[in-house]
Write a protein that binds this DNA or RNA. Structure first.
Length: 771
DNA sequence: TACCGAGTATTTTTT
DNA sequence: ATACTCGGTA
């Protein structure tokens, strides 16, 4: 008897859901029902009695994906799913390490360094060791450490054939020692430490291997070598691993993701037949054709071709704007049209390559009173004031946390300057103490301000003995001086609001904890936990019912809250739930779908990003990113670019992205600004009539605007020139315009000539001919 | 010794 | 635009 949720699945989907034994690799194209396959398989396993909820491990990359999975399984089955191990790689490793913290040589309440913390950690370490930060930029060191960990390498196993890495390796060693002293771990350490734990302890390994009968991996193409080894180690003889992925959507190579894992998986897990999901249920024909055609330019692919039976739909609209502000105006104008035509704002997404691009779009949306929601960017827990408050809390929880100490020792200002802190660091280093503990060993008057600080922290610690978590958070905000500080700051009110929000978040956290730990662990149909309990009667590791998992930890609510804050860096932002236009980077759009999608900033240098041009296979990864962007769209897709864009406070000029060339013309409909303005978009440009031929570039913002309203200025040949225009120079030959700058007699133009050199020529002098 | 202002470098994407 | 460093001043 197959449960009804198999109905409506196509054949390959059904095959993936009902694999009986062994492992499988599912090559799931964009929009081919990947999540549905994963969740239906879990529901199928449970309801058919093939596995109990405790025998299933499902791993994703983002908290969002994990939550989505839980939600969808919850819709199919009325069980308590909390006991199931569904989570991110980092979340699950965190869970294991807490559980086996002794064997992993970690304090029970170890805290997690995020990327920012890690960088300041590295800086502090290097200063302590007097390493020249000009020769070895902290960022490089951080990257070195992280990539080593991503490959599963400790400092003593990093390859160093020519001795070039020696200083980095030494720093890596010192870094790990210091982390251990302070009782903190970074993201990579979570995974590496868990892997080593599994490698080292046969009993723990065997325990998990026999426990997890089914492992399901989402976005398998994004796994790095460390995660792959972890999966291999976790799966025992009788474990079936279902890996679902799409090599065309591999967009995280920059952080160590290794698509080759798909090939390794085929071999290591003895996959006889790859299941291909090629029917796309998401996008209309034009969108799919365009995406297929684009991605076919990539050389290394496992190969598949998506098809749909939902009709061709509308052409993709392409809009080239002279300036970023007009691009934004055009996008928002179109958005407004859709909203007027009763498209829900939440079905509309505006995507961009990098977070910095969101600002201008937000501005325009604000101006036109359209609700929107920005994902990513500065997350709640990344805000400075929140990090400050959390640092106080972290120091209270663990006084060895030097990162937290340094962050707040003089914030708000307590007249503790660099000199005092250097002395403190010296003492701490000599006596091998944490900074906090070293305060008592300081001599002379320098120690006064520091002693007072220490006293304050200890006072707070005494006080919070009698308060619950929200009270603690509130108390810290007041007693630390943060409240006072932000009250007196000009822009402090918003920050104060955020701090209040943190108190609210903490009480929400407590409430959630209470609810989930009060649910009895009863899984109805196929509970088979008794079987597990006998696996290793003589071994110290015993299976703990997951609903009891948290109870078995001695973590204070504060410690739990802090872990939660660093692991889920504030996915839930204010304004959720409301119908709002969705703004996000393409990376964070992966896995999502929308009726209407705008991909903005399609410019060479921006997308593909200039940094990618010098990386091996960089452009291919960018192309996959474009593929991901395009395949988010169900019904309508819009692509836009701007010739001039303000970036890092400067105006930069770009040509259109090569990706636009790589889409078949038949799928596209190109719009020009003039065309649009004259039709129905005049409003976006404040009623100004724009004539594309008369535009001038390279002017300052204000000049540009004044020129738009009155186009009589600039009668020189700057008028006729445009970025990307081919020109001929008597002496230098043919070239292409890269940028224009200045006005009047000051006007100059950057041209790249055929001999490959770029020259800056004065327009008043140089005779240029358009070709 | 601390603070303030000027000058300089910096930015892809995320757990 | 923003974060961070450096040097001069209080």
């Amino acid at each position: 008897m197959n449960p009804e949720f198999l109905d409506g699945l196509n054949d390959p989907q059904k095959a993936a859901v009902t694999i009986e034994n062994g492992s499988a690799l599912v090559l799931a194209g964009a929009g081919s029902g990947k999540t549905r396959v994963l969740t239906t398989r879990i529901a199928w396993l449970l309801s058919m009695g093939k596995a109990s909820s405790q025998e299933i491990l499902a791993v994703t990359f983002t908290n969002k994906a994990a939550k989505e999975m839980l939600l969808r399984i919850g819709l199919m089955l009325p069980y308590n799913l909390r006991s199931m191990w569904i989570g991110t790689f980092h979340g699950l490793c965190n869970r294991m390490l807490r559980h086996h913290h002794e064997q992993a040589a970690l304090p029970e309440s170890f805290q997690i360094l995020d990327t920012q913390d890690q960088l300041s950690f590295v800086k502090r370490l290097m200063k302590n060791l007097s390493v020249d930060t000009d020769k070895f930029p902290p960022r490089q060191v951080q990257k070195f450490i992280n990539s080593a960990k991503e490959e599963g390498l400790r400092y003593d196993s990093v390859d160093d054939p020519n001795g070039f890495n020696r200083p980095y390796i030494e720093l890596y060693e010192a870094y790990d020692i210091q982390c251990q002293k302070e009782g903190v771990v970074d993201f990579g350490e979570l995974l590496l430490r868990t892997l080593e734990l599994l490698q080292r302890s046969e009993s723990i390994r065997k325990h998990y291997q026999s426990r997890f009968k089914h492992i399901l991996v989402d976005e398998f193409q994004d796994t790095n070598s460390l995660q792959y080894s972890w999966l291999k180690l976790l799966s025992g003889r009788s474990t079936g691993v279902l890996a679902v992925g799409d090599d065309d959507q591999s967009i995280y190579a920059f952080r160590g993701a290794n698509v080759a894992n798909m090939q390794y998986f085929e071999k290591d897990f003895k996959i006889t037949k790859i299941i291909r999901l090629e029917q796309n249920y998401r996008s209309h024909g034009f969108i799919l054709d365009a995406a297929n055609s684009l991605i076919s330019r990539n050389t290394s692919r496992l190969g598949k071709n998506l098809w749909t039976d939902s009709g061709m739909g509308e052409c993709i609209r392409v809009f080239e704007s002279p300036e970023d502000v007009f691009e934004a105006a055009w996008v928002v104008d179109e958005v407004k049209d859709f909203i007027n035509m009763e498209t829900s704002p939440s079905d509309i997404a505006i995507l961009y390559r990098s977070n910095a691009q969101s600002r201008i779009l937000e501005h325009e949306l604000n101006k036109r009173n359209i609700d929107y929601r920005v994902y990513g960017g500065l997350r709640f827990y990344d805000r400075a004031e929140i990090k400050h408050a959390l640092a106080y809390l972290r120091l209270l929880e663990n006084q060895n946390d030097d990162t937290a100490f340094m962050r707040i020792v003089n914030f708000p200002s307590r007249k503790i300057g660099n000199r005092s802190l250097e002395q403190l660091q010296d003492v701490a280093k000599t006596l091998d103490l944490s900074l906090f503990d070293a305060i008592d060993n300081l001599e002379g008057k320098v120690s006064l301000a520091l002693s007072k600080f220490k006293e304050m922290i200890e006072d707070i610690r005494n006080e919070i003995n009698f308060s619950n978590l929200p009270e603690t958070v509130d108390l810290v905000i007041r007693r630390s001086g943060l409240e006072e500080y932000y009250l007196s700051e000009k822009n402090g009110s918003e920050r104060l609001e955020n701090l209040k929000e943190l108190v609210t978040a903490s009480s929400g956290f407590i409430a959630e904890e209470k609810i989930s730990s009060s649910i009895p662990s009863n899984f109805g149909i196929s509970r088979r936990s008794s079987k597990n309990e006998n696996i290793e009667p003589n071994k110290p590791v015993t299976l703990v019912d997951e609903s009891e998992f948290d109870k078995n930890l001695n973590l204070t609510p504060l410690a739990k809250f802090l872990v939660n804050a660093s692991l889920e860096s504030g996915e839930s932002q204010a304004g959720a739930g409301k119908a709002a236009v969705q703004l996000m980077t393409i990376h964070s759009a992966k896995g999502l779908e929308f009726d209407v999608v705008f991909v903005t900033g399609l410019e060479e240098g921006l997308f593909p990003h200039e940094n990618s041009l010098s990386e091996i296979n960089g452009v291919e990864e960018e192309r996959r990113l474009m593929y991901v962007a395009m395949t988010r769209a169900k019904k309508r897709l819009f692509l836009s670019s701007a010739q001039a864009r303000r970036l890092h406070g400067q105006v930069r000029y770009h040509q259109q992205s090569r990706f636009l060339e790589e889409i078949p013309k038949e799928c596209l409909k190109k719009l020009s600004m003039q065309h649009d303005t004259n039709l129905n978009h005049a409003s976006a440009f404040n009623g100004r009539k724009l004539n594309v031929e008369n535009q001038t570039y390279g002017l300052t913002h204000n000049e540009l605007h004044s020129n738009f309203s009155s186009n009589e200025k600039n009668s020189n040949n700057l008028n006729a020139l445009k970025v990307g225009q081919y020109v001929r120079h008597q002496r230098f030959g043919d070239g292409i315009v890269l940028a224009l700058q200045g006005t009047g007699s000051e006007a100059s133009v950057h041209i790249k000539f055929e001999q490959n050199d770029v020259r800056c020529l004065s327009l008043a002098i140089a005779k240029l001919e358009k070709i």
